[in-house]
Computed example of a mutant assay.
Amino acid sequence: MEFTAGGRLEVRITGADVGKRVSVRRVSEEGPAGRKFTDTVGVLTSWNDGVLLITRRNGERVAIDASSLVAGKVVPAEPARRRGPSATYPELARIASRAWQPVERELLGEWELRAASGFTRRANSLLPVGDPGLPLDDALRYVEQWYGDRGLPAYAQTATGAQGTQEVLCAELEARGWAREVSAELRIAALAPIGDAADDPGVVLSREPGEAWLGRYQRKGADEVALKVLCAGPSVWFATAPGAGDVPAAIGRCVVDGRWAGFAAVEVDPAQRRSGLATRVMTALARRALDEGASAAWLQVEAENDGARALYDRMGFATHHTYHHYRAPERRCG
């Protein structure tokens, strides 16, 4: 915290600092034992009617009455992580979008509208990175109309912990009635250690998923649109670990895009979980990606998937940011 020359705490932030990372101290309780204080660090996403809204890295929002502040300052961005590759949010957001491509795509300024007949939110949501070239309300109206013309709900994929303006956009969407529905982490790691695990010649790699692979894939009814999404990308590989019958014991998908290898659809027979199958599948895919020149890995995992998160922790993956899907409010006619 900042002190004045007299040694007293000082509030050095104002509404002009919205969008910046700040550290604040506030009075959280007063009683016979004296004052108790609470510290909060995050992005100042709004300051309206005497209330500050600070978004922490995990997406949690903290509302603070300005009258309770005893100290506050703008603080530098979080230091670079000590493990794994370095990357910016725009780079990773666009890498992830290329790895899960929609069937239909349109640009609104630097924003990307994506549609794939409703197959997954990622392929049917706005990616608002950069400037839409319009005032925000006009841009959002265009987005809602674009998805409405296709019979789809309007979703926007935003992020927190991304060291940019995404936290402010999240707050702006919520102020306009957009509801957060799903959150997940995007994690990154060095690729070589993943490929260093014991080789498993039983894992088969292919350029297309095939009937056996699709038999294990959880999203049943993989139609033509789903297959287009699954097979699209700069360099796509599918891994299959054979099982006792026609359905594989485990599967996985990897998209190689420059230095990045993105893992997805890693699924294991429930009866064989925690037997190392997921690691074997990812190792085979990592080795192929290393052969193609990749050096860094990324994947996405939902916040409540504790089993997968524990596995990725052991493999060296660290959270880069948390992304969220916001759904536009229903508009009534008349």
Rank of each mutant, 00 (worst) to 15 (best):
G50R: 13
N48R: 15
R8V: 13
L9W: 12
W47L: 13
K20S: 11
A16Q: 14
L44M: 13
N58M: 09
F37H: 07
V51S: 01
R21F: 04
E29Y: 11
G34F: 09
R57G: 00
V22G: 01
G15C: 05
V18C: 06
N58H: 11
L9N: 09
D39H: 01
R26Y: 00
R57N: 08
G15P: 07
S28Q: 10
G19P: 06
E30K: 11
V27L: 04
G59A: 06
A33E: 15
A16Y: 12
T45S: 13
G15F: 07
R57A: 08
T55G: 00
R56E: 14
F37R: 00
S23R: 09
R25K: 11
V11N: 12
V43W: 03
I13Y: 07
G50T: 12
P32K: 14
T40W: 05
T40G: 03
T45L: 04
T40R: 02
T45P: 07
E30T: 11
S46I: 09
T14C: 06
E10F: 04
R12V: 04
R8E: 15
I13N: 02
I13E: 06
A33G: 12
T14K: 08
T38Q: 09
S28Y: 01
L52W: 13
R26M: 04
A33M: 13
V43H: 00
F37S: 00
G59C: 06
S46Y: 10
T38A: 03
G59Q: 01
S23V: 02
S23D: 07
K20Y: 07
G31I: 04
V24A: 03
R12C: 12
A33R: 15
T55M: 07
L9V: 10
P32Q: 13
L52C: 09
G34P: 09
G59F: 04
R8Y: 14
G7L: 10
K36N: 03
V51G: 02
G31V: 05
E10K: 10
D17T: 05
A16H: 14
E30Q: 13
G19C: 05
D39C: 01
